[in-house]
Design a protein around this nucleic acid. Structure first.
Lengths: 138, 138
DNA sequence: CTTTTATTGATAATGATTATAATTAGCAAT
DNA sequence: ATTGCTAATTATAATCATTATCAATAAAAG
């Protein structure tokens, strides 16, 4: 009896999903669903806007990609090179440059604070916004 | 010639602003602009929705109140008992219970990570979501 | 009281996201 | 290759929070 398969993002694979995946993996920045949709349109790849939203959402749920909320409320997605574990981002608010960082210190701290206060099932997301070196020069 | 005054949130004080302030200070949870507006309406205090948005925004800018974004994209506000400095929140995603915590460890870590990567003008916001003790029992 | 102009508020506009409902298309079985 | 089941897609309308508009109102100063 084979081990139970990982739950798949989707039950059926489609060209649309491939296109979206590919588009997202082609850039190293956080992009919104609208961005990806525009990007695909430019390439003459017709994919419905709703499909882009749905696909990105599902992938984020599955943690195959990272999701953050921009200051103006948009949800942005990005493929994470290292899909091996929990990590955080250092994001340049000028140019969007993103550096992935790990922080055992944070993990321990949040864990401790949560426990001290009787919280369970805690989740946290630490994304640091700032201005990167090259943007500062300008 | 007198010293330049601190920039005030507002140039003129109005009953609307007082009402909004009071309403927010009357609860110990994060509330949206819409929530506050509804709350005021219930008390027969007529304040325009736009005014609630504007006022809360300005107060948040001034850091007289805290602002976070809920998972579903709403901006939520809360008065912070301690207005003396930077702090974070432990928020129950079931009941909204909020505990204010400080984290020197976090401050140091973000500072260090940012510096290592040449980032300046960094800002971070660490809000931990989880389920509080009493909600867990249910 | 009168003037000046910050502030308000009703409402339209915006913009991201979600729901709807009809159509299309995986894919397993025939 | 064809069929059937139903996931997936798509165009479009609907939502919902938030912002812009701009005339009306009311602080604060003179």
């Amino acid at each position: 009896m084979p081990l139970k398969e990982d739950k798949k993002i989707v039950e059926r694979s489609t060209r649309q999903q491939s296109s979206i995946l590919e588009a997202l993996y082609g850039v190293d920045e956080f992009k919104s669903a609208q961005d990806i949709h525009a990007l695909l349109s430019k390439k003459k790849l017709k994919v419905g806007l709703a499909t882009v939203y749905r696909t990105l959402q599902k992938m984020a749920e599955k943690e195959d990609i990272d999701a953050i909320k921009s200051v103006d409320g948009e949800t942005l997605y990005r493929h994470c090179g290292q899909n091996d574990g929990h990590h955080h981002h250092l994001i340049c608010s000028k140019c969007g440059l993103t550096i992935t960082v790990e922080g055992p210190a944070i993990e321990n701290w949040t864990e401790k604070v949560a426990k001290e206060n009787g919280f369970r099932e805690v989740s946290h997301k630490v994304d640091i916004f700032g201005v990167c070196k090259s943007c500062k020069k300008k």
